[in-house]
Design a protein around this nucleic acid. Sequence first.
DNA 1: GCACTGACTCCCA
DNA 2: ATGGGAGCCAGTG
Length: 116
Amino acid sequence: MPNRIKLNPRHQKIYSIVCEIPKGCVSTYGDIARFAGYPRCARLVGVALRSAPDDLNIPWHRVINAQGKISFSKGSDKAQIQQQRLEEESVVFMSGVVNLRQYGWAGNIDKDLWQM
DNA sequence: GCACTGACTCCCA
DNA sequence: ATGGGAGCCAGTG
């Protein structure tokens, strides 16, 4: 990913993590924050993604909250776009909720690798 | 530098 | 299962 844009190291770290999310998978703010090295900074992820320029092509739509839902207000433009993009990646929304057990990227490694 | 806000999360009623 | 409240850390004004 191009890092020509000068941003805070934390943000860049978060961007890197988000970019590592494989297609067809989703992750949560809390998990990404953990991977980035900021266990309690779920909000920071939100701030970072909000500041994320489109130039980087950040797959921010693969980032959802711990409930498996979109953090935006229902009916919000971004929420619509996010869901649509995920569906295009074979991520199925059931009642507006993503099954993290199945699509959760962090979920695959969280149990064994991050169990401490 | 202080105070408020937030694309969050967790716990309890 | 659902709803409400407190905690958390950074960013922004």
